[in-house]
């Protein structure tokens, strides 16, 4: 897992899993369809990415599909950054 994916994974675990929830979050674990992140809570993930990587993700592209796995989120971030 590269640094970008690790940062996303770590944020998801800290932000969305309750204490005592020992579910493993891998690169391809479904986050939204798997019930780990709901559409309301997705906002904080988007804000985290925008602040950390100094990017702006348009709402139209912040779809549940784009945010469903660490892999797809990393792909989205890479679209808006260079050299990450």
């Amino acid at each position: 897992m590269d640094e970008l994916k690790k940062a996303i994974r770590d944020y998801v675990v800290k932000e969305y899993l309750e204490d005592g929830d020992d579910r493993e979050v891998r690169e391809d674990t479904p986050l939204i369809t798997g019930g780990i992140v709901d559409s309301f809570s997705m906002v904080s993930l988007k804000r985290f990415l925008e602040r950390k990587y100094t990017i702006q993700i348009p709402d139209a592209q912040a779809t549940p599909q784009a945010f469903d796995t660490v892999n797809s989120i990393a792909e989205l971030v890479r679209k808006f950054t260079s050299g990450v």
């Binding site: 309750e18 709901d38 309301f40 809570s41 906002v43 904080s44």
Partner: peptide
């Protein structure tokens, strides 16, 4: 900023509002 276990009717009301949504762990 809503508790993650609020009732479904609150979730629906929040969806109808243009303010930003965020949640906190229960």
């Amino acid at each position: 900023i809503a508790d993650r276990l609020v009732h479904a009717s609150i979730v629906d009301g929040m969806r109808l509002c243009k303010a930003m949504t965020d949640t906190f762990k229960h």
